[in-house]
Design a protein around this nucleic acid. Structure first.
Lengths: 206, 206
DNA sequence: TAATTGTTTGCAGTGAGTGCAAGTTTCTGC
DNA sequence: GCAGAAACTTGCACTCACTGCAAACAATTA
């Protein structure tokens, strides 16, 4: 990931990382509710005012989202091969992000924290909405649908929802691996989530 | 609804209603962002401190949700007829709430306001999450699934998502009626939202 | 090295939200 | 009807999130 650019560029990245890291560490230590911006700023050795130059809220810093992911996702959607169905594209995008987070060790550290804190989970949803707007726009265009079409919007939103559901389920039942839960969720979405009461779980799945 | 109880009880309801009403009116007049709790309290003729005895945030007062709706929805899920598929149940629940809001004239007053304001929309989502948890629990039991099952959680969440998407699409393209958008969304969910790029919109629909 | 541009910071201020202790109102038993 | 208990309201002092502004500072460019 582009570490080009001059000193200035690198310093900004460094500061941002330091703030995010401090925010996460403190949140894990004391619980997200009991961390103040002042502490985070102090730990990262910058002023409180500078904190707000980097993040709009405390929660945003703790979430520490990587903007790179959205960029890559949008690119992936725009350049999806013609034979690939939209939901499959999103599936691949999600798995990509997941793999990235796991390799960082971020998933275990942040995942638990976020799902355990209402405030953080809420904040995650809020930022997800903005992402989803952009993803929807990209997918709508990729599918050649008109601007107000229901399907692309629904595909993106439900894919996002699936991720959240998976995270939540993983919290309550950590025995099943996340990837497996995710695969099941996307299969259900693809085939239609509905079923008659009492019907078998997976009818006609590979 | 239950005007029993003594003077004290009635006065509390009155104060609560006055605060909610003032909050909504002021939000409509000046935009939700530009209303302060102080103004709301003043308009309802109580102190700021008292406002916070009734509502945890400003947004909560403006949203003024009717807790009755969730109760009815839960009941509806628990007593769903055996031949009714889960998604259908949720569909009916949603239409029920929608009809109720429309008859109150609440949908037009609050709906526009909420969808037009990021803050309010976000707040709505936050409260929706809590609702969805309860709905999921009810549906999981109704379907006879184990606690961590993916499908019921996904059904509830995606149904909620569908509502959101519909509200959002309705905002950007108000020509199509909400009920029509909603029906399309639920149909897509039932049949599987995915489709190959460039395929027809609805394959095999009635 | 000098001018330009971008970043950091302190300061002053608004507004949300909380805990506490003192006042006021409603309720209860007599 | 009245004294005391219980519930509600209020003002006050406080913490914290967050913003705008202008000055100081660091990096870039010519």
């Amino acid at each position: 990931m582009g570490a080009e650019g001059g000193l200035r560029e690198r310093k900004k990245l460094q500061t941002r990382a330091a703030l995010a890291e401090a925010a996460l560490r403190l949140a894990l230590e004391k619980g997200p509710e009991h961390v103040t911006v002042e502490e985070i700023a102090e730990a990262a050795d910058v002023s409180v005012r500078t904190f707000f130059n980097y993040f709009p809220h405390k929660e945003h810093a703790i979430l520490g989202r990587n903007p790179e992911h959205l960029v890559r996702a949008l690119e992936r959607i725009r350049t999806a091969p013609p034979y690939e169905s939209p939901l499959t594209t999103l599936w691949l995008v999600v798995r990509d992000v997941l793999r990235d987070l796991e390799s960082d060790g971020e998933l275990s550290r942040r995942g638990e924290l976020i799902m355990g804190s209402p405030t953080l989970f809420h904040q995650l949803m809020l930022t997800s909405i903005d992402d989803e707007r952009q993803l929807t726009a990209a997918l709508t265009e990729r599918m050649g649908e008109p601007a107000g079409a229901v399907r692309p919007a629904l595909i993106v939103s439900t894919a996002g929802t699936a991720c959240r559901v998976v995270m939540e389920l993983h919290k309550t039942a950590p025995d099943r691996p996340v990837t497996e839960l995710l695969d099941e969720a996307f299969h259900l979405l693809a085939q239609g989530i509905d079923t008659a009461f009492g019907a078998d779980n997976q009818k006609g799945t590979s």
